[in-house]
Design a protein around this nucleic acid. Structure first.
Length: 576
RNA sequence: CGGGGUGUAGCGCAGCCUGGUAGCGCGUCUGCUUCGGGAGCAGAAGGUCGCAGGUUCGAAUCCUGUCACCCCGACCA
């Protein structure tokens, strides 16, 4: 990569942060001139931003190739027929950006490429001898998100690396899956990110086995829990909870109490003077048109993923007011599990021995007190319904979960035959019998990684890129352009660094030192070589790492070697 | 889609309530002075006040509609 002069480089920095940017990575990427917004969730990458994208891609590419995957490029625009074949033209919903061509044919902008890749492969793969096969690409994906947010964190248009593996059977497919897992560990480690592989729910993509790669960040959208004792880490939607069974509370007499207008947990607990955990939160869901009632402790959230799994329904959503009223015979807000006839009632298992609880009476403006779940809720099923949270028991070892927030930068799925079956992707095995391919898919959010990296690597003055993905590795800053010795020294260092393969920038703009320093910090180049009159007088320049406050005076003849070795160290992950 | 908020110069904002020829800071351009952590002075360029209707002698300001953007929620390979 060529060296570059700041007088040539287009990197428009902003002193003030555009008000649309709330999270730090969004603010800094805008201010430092890496990206600009075109529309909600749609961004342009400026020269520096694009260099970072390519750096990230290069790391991913190397590790994917090393793991035996082959890079290809699938189309962005996809015909509706394929999506109809897999059933997702209907199922995917409004997030799928649909288009018509001039002849009225239906197409979509690819939000993902299972259909396209499976179609490709079914036409070409005939024999088990051609397996295993793992194909990947870097692609611009488009998902018409309900609410794009936080800049690159959740865009509608974004760059993703997606890979798809094809194997003869389940066992081989799991080997492919594990190979990708180790590739992902290598990738995110090299990218300089603090991350966790997390057991995850596989969502509507289908499949049984799945891990998310979460970059730890307070601004992350995902909630994850991790057990400090056994290391089990999972998305809260998936996390297996332990619980203390067997505690049966003392019986209490059932009572009725008027609670005019008290509909929410907060209102009821305030009116009756009981804590929220004494209440039974009763939620009615619409599973394929029939109601199912779920009951969890007042202060807790129902885990919809777990709930949905219990129903195995095509459509599953909170019931509308009409259904709630039909089921309970009362206004919304007064539902309770007691006395509901002919409706499936599932109660969280932690409530099995519960007594002295409060719940809606299925009568407007009335609640029941002293409820004993076992005694009063006829035909109740018990199941794990809770969203895992901080302090909950780990389902693996009984330790206490700690909660984190994360940014999902990667996701690996074992798909099985979900798509190969639907699209008919089969090969002949050794015995000559036709076998449906076993698939896996593996995504990495390339542009989201920029946001995640900045979330993890910044300070009050700007970005602090890890060496591996920094757009340039070194910034040479001559402070006094009028001092010929300063200019000559800086130019010489700049040229020699470039000559030995270091990606170097020189701030040759005729600006005051303060401006140069501020921009240098904002841009986040890992190493800075400052050349000033005072130092040159003594035959020295200053070397400073962006992620440290230490400034080192270095003899002019030694800087190039020093810097080059620091760069090498940073790239190999052994130092900075 | 529900709730909340914002659209005035490249960026950040005031002006709107109480209609009367559009302003401030930063940035940009020119000149001089400055020069180790976002300089000073002087001058200059730059705005369909998101858009469309309406009220009015007159609308950034009042009314109606609409669009865009942001935040919370729901949603989500």
């Amino acid at each position: 990569m060529q060296p570059m002069r700041l007088t040539q480089l287009w990197s428009p920095t902003l002193k003030e942060s555009p008000k649309e940017a709330e999270v730090i990575s969004h603010q800094l990427l805008l201010r430092a001139g890496y990206i600009r917004k075109l529309a909600a969730g749609i961004y342009t990458f400026l020269p520096l931003g694009w260099r970072v994208v390519r750096k990230v891609e290069d790391v991913i590419r190397e590790e994917m190739d090393r793991a035996g995957a082959q890079e290809i490029r699938l189309p962005t625009v996809q015909p509706a027929e394929l999506w109809e074949e897999s059933g997702r033209w209907e199922k995917y919903g409004p997030e799928l950006m649909r288009l018509k061509d001039r002849k009225g044919g239906n197409f979509c902008l690819g939000p993902t490429h299972e259909e396209v890749i499976t179609d490709l492969v079914r036409g070409e793969l005939r024999s088990y001898r051609q397996l295993p096969l793992n194909l990947y690409q870097f692609q611009t994906k488009f998902r018409d998100e309900l609410r794009p947010r936080a800049g690159l964190m959740r865009g509608r248009e974004f760059i993703m690396k997606d890979a798809y593996s094809f194997d003869l059977d389940e066992e081989a497919a799991r080997e492919s899956y594990e190979r990708m897992r180790s590739a992902y560990d290598a990738i995110f480690t090299r990218l300089g990110l603090a991350f966790r592989p997390v057991e995850a729910d596989s969502g509507n993509i289908g499949g049984s086995l799945s891990h998310e790669y979460q970059v730890l960040a307070e601004t992350g959208e995902d909630a994850i829990v991790s057990c400090p004792d056994c290391g089990y880490t999972a998305n809260v939607e998936k996390a297996e909870l332990g619980f203390d069974a067997g505690s049966v509370e003392e019986p209490t007499p059932l009572g009725r109490v008027d609670t005019p207008g008290a509909r929410t947990i907060d209102e009821v607990s305030a009116m009756l003077g009981v804590t929220a955990d004494r209440l039974l939160k009763t939620l009615v869901y619409d599973a394929d048109g029939s109601p199912v009632v779920f009951v969890v402790p007042g202060g807790r959230d129902l885990n919809e993923v777990k709930a949905e799994r219990l129903c195995s329904a095509e459509s599953f959503a909170p019931a509308g007011a009409a259904m709630v009223e039909a089921v309970t015979g009362a206004a919304v807000g007064f539902a309770g599990p007691v006395g509901l006839d002919g409706v499936r009632v599932v109660v969280d298992r932690t409530l099995e021995g519960a007594a002295d609880r409060v719940c809606g009476a299925n009568e407007t403006d009335v609640h029941l007190t002293g409820v004993m779940v076992r005694r009063d809720v006829e035909g109740a099923e018990f199941a794990d319904l809770l969203e895992a949270g901080d302090g909950d028991r780990c389902g693996r070892c009984g330790g206490r979960f700690a909660a984190f927030r994360g940014i999902e930068v990667g996701h690996v799925f074992h798909l099985g035959t979900r798509y190969s079956e639907a699209l008919g992707a089969r090969v002949l095995d050794e015995e000559g019998t036709e076998v449906t391919l076993s698939m896996g898919c593996y995504g990495i959010g390339v542009t989201r990684i920029l946001a995640a990296a900045v979330e993890q690597h910044h300070d009050g003055d700007g970005i602090r890129w890890p060496m591996v993905i920094a757009p340039y590795q070194v910034l040479v800053v001559p402070l006094q352009l009028r001092d010929e010795r300063v200019v000559a020294t800086a130019e010489s260092i700049y040229e020699r660094l470039g000559a030995c393969g270091v990606e170097v920038l020189i701030d040759d703009r005729d600006l005051r030192p303060g401006n140069k320093f501020k921009d240098a910090d904002l841009l986040g180049i890992p190493l800075r070589v400052t050349v000033g009159s005072r130092g040159v007088e003594k035959g020295q320049v200053e070397l400073k790492a962006r992620d440290s406050d230490d400034v080192h005076d270095v003899a002019i003849e030694e800087v190039v070697d020093r810097v080059a070795s620091l760069v090498r160290g940073g790239l190999s992950g052994t130092g900075r």
